[in-house]
């Protein structure tokens, strides 16, 4: 049972890992993007449709990234050029993604899928437990294993990453040095959208292997919440994503074994876990938050 839960955590968690990495990069630059849900949806549909039309799952995954990126550019333009409120814009972008995928995705609902196959890693997949949990997945999941440390290295060990973090911690300082924080933010938001799109691609063409309206079902929002859990550290985002999807796998196991508990109460477990963990960590994580994010949660209501 433990093995099944761990396998489920990795299988179901990959799409959230990608989206959470995307939000981490975005927020590190000082911008919150609640449009991740929309970018994931766009990525899911694009990957699914292009996979069917071209017959290539990899072209599908690339299209998923492009679609997620395209949607995040809407957010970037409104926030960076037009100075729009990030929370409202992000939610609107998610709505936009929902609508666009509903409009264009209708003809693809429950069509045959061209899906990523599970590729066991030779030799390593024969290791008891570890082999099944880590080395027996679709290629995009392996890609996520690589993406996590790669992104960490990019953020903390490259000058572009340093500029990106500086635009989240002290955009004023950066401006004083003659470097525009907005260049870093354009990069961060679009990279974030592309990663979320890749997460959506994994969801549709490797995990669920189907397309249905609103199939992301809140994973994009969960990914945003998990960034706080991870303290804006890419290495910890994978822990958060697996914690959530592990809780999902756990309750699915309970359902399969017939405990007599209502499935709705079991379904609630992953969300309760995330809320409790966030509550326990929020104070400690406050100092980890990029300083520029303080302004994001300012609401500017008109006077009456």
């Amino acid at each position: 049972m433990i093995e099944a839960i761990c396998i489920g955590a990795v299988r179901g968690g990959t799409s959230i890992v990608f989206a959470s990495l995307g939000e981490t990069v975005t927020e590190r630059s000082g911008v919150v993007n609640l449009g991740m849900e929309g970018s994931m949806l766009a990525g899911a549909l694009a990957a699914y449709a292009v996979g069917i039309e071209t017959g290539s799952v990899w072209l599908g995954a690339a299209a998923g990234m492009a679609a997620g990126l395209a949607l995040s550019l809407v957010h970037a333009f409104l926030v960076l050029v037009r100075g729009a409120n990030q929370i409202a814009t992000g939610l609107a972008v998610t709505f936009l993604g929902l609508g666009i995928t509903a409009l264009y995705g209708q003809s693809y609902v429950s069509q045959g899928v061209n899906a990523f196959e599970v590729v066991p890693v030779p030799i390593l997949s024969d290791i008891p437990f570890v082999g099944a949990v880590i080395f027996n997945h679709d290629p995009l999941t392996y890609l996520s294993f690589v993406a996590v440390p790669l992104l960490w290295w990019f953020l903390f060990h490259t000058s572009t990453g340093l500029r990106l973090r500086a635009s989240g911690e002290g955009p004023g300082v950066l401006s004083a040095m003659g470097i525009s924080p907005s260049a870093s933010r354009w990069l961060a938001i679009s990279a974030g959208g592309a990663l979320a799109g890749l997460g959506g691609a994994q969801l549709a063409t490797a995990f669920a292997r189907t397309w249905s309206e609103d199939m992301v079902a809140g994973r994009g929002f969960i990914a945003v919440a998990l960034v706080i859990f991870a303290g804006w550290n890419p290495l910890l985002t994978i822990v958060g994503a697996y914690l959530f999807s592990g809780a999902v796998a756990f309750q699915l196991e309970l359902q399969a074994n017939g405990t007599g508990i209502s499935i709705f109460l079991l379904d609630a477990i992953p969300y309760v876990v995330v809320i409790v963990v966030l509550a326990a960590l929020s104070r400690r994580r406050r100092h980890a938050a990029p300083a520029a994010l303080d302004d994001v949660f300012q609401v500017d209501a008109t006077l009456v």
Binding site: V74, L78, R82, A84, N85, A88, T89, A92, V93, F95, L96, L98, G99, I100, A102, L103, G105, Q106, E213, D214
Partner: peptide, 17 residues
């Protein structure tokens, strides 16, 4: 799909924002 109108709702908000 009836959800297509979400596009219009989102665009209107984005325009105002």
């Amino acid at each position: 799909s009836a959800a297509s109108v979400n596009i219009l709702m989102a665009l209107l908000l984005l325009a105002v924002l």
